[in-house]
Each structure stands twice: as C-alpha cells, then as structure tokens.
C-alpha cells in the first residue's frame, strides 16, 4: 500500500541527498565574500618581528618577509615572540622567527606570504592566500 509514510521512508536518502546538495550549492554562492584575501600595512615597517593579526612580518634591513600567523598545526594565531621563538599558544608548537619548525606538534613551517608594495601609498599588500 502506498502511504505518505512509506513514500517518505523509501525516498528519505534521496531527499537527504537533495537537501545536502542544495545546502552545499547555497553556501558556495557566498564564498566570495567570506574571507579576506589581502592584508594591507601602511607606512613604516619596524625592524625585527612584528605581528599584524593574520600576518607576521620579519624585517632585517631591506630584507622583508611576511608569514601567516596561523600555526600550521591547527590554525591558532601566533601573537607574540618569546626568546626569539614564535610559540603557538594553543598547543605549544614552536617556530623560529623565519617560520621554521623548532618543536612540534606542527609538522610544517609557517606559510610564507607574497606581497607587493605600492610606493605612492607607501602600502604593503600581503596576499593571504598565497
């Protein structure tokens, strides 16, 4: 006998799959506004290691490097330098100031980010997705 309950029971996986697919597509459409892809720093860059939210700057004279401040273990933000080390506050991974691993659990060095410099605005644009 074809009842409403039977139909629903037989089609439940199809319905669930459809809902899942629809949800997935719906969320995809919002991706472009989800994440910042650039971080801008205007003006003077200090020598040594500086922290700018998602970005860690390492400046040695004219040699400038930017690293992601996200720990490669689980993404916690590293916010300070201690004893010339960058220590993740969440799980204790340690990195050198140029991003190399000193101690786990992180298994990869900090991600180095590319950047460009706009002379007119005296602005550094760090590419977070690089």
């Amino acid at each position: 006998m074809i009842s409403r309950r039977n139909v629903l029971r037989k089609m439940k996986w199809i319905i669930l799959a459809f809902l899942g697919y629809a949800g997935y597509k719906t969320s995809l459409r919002t991706m472009s506004t989800e994440k910042a892809t650039q971080y801008r720093i205007t003006g003077h860059l200090a020598e040594g290691v500086s922290f700018y939210g998602p970005v860690i700057l390492q400046k040695n004279g004219r040699h400038i490097r930017f690293f992601s401040s996200s720990c490669t273990h689980l993404g916690c933000q590293i916010t300070e330098e201690s004893n010339r080390k960058l220590v993740c506050p969440c799980h204790g991974s340690e990195f050198t100031t140029d991003g190399k691993i000193l101690k786990g659990p992180a298994g990869k060095p900090l991600r180095e980010l590319t950047f460009s410099y706009h002379r007119e605005k005296d602005e550094y644009i760090v590419h977070l997705s690089s």
Partner: peptide, 22 residues
C-alpha cells in the same frame, strides 16, 4: 597569554598537543 578551550575540551587540547596529524 594563556588560552584554554572549554573545560570539557581541555583534555582534547592536551591530546592535540601530542598529535602531529590532528
């Protein structure tokens, strides 16, 4: 400077410290 997860996940925080591949 110390950050802690919710009390019921502090144990997991310690376990994750031991896991290279979380």
């Amino acid at each position: 400077p110390v950050v802690k997860g919710p009390w019921y996940l502090i144990g997991l925080q310690e376990i994750l410290h031991l896991m290279k591949n979380p």
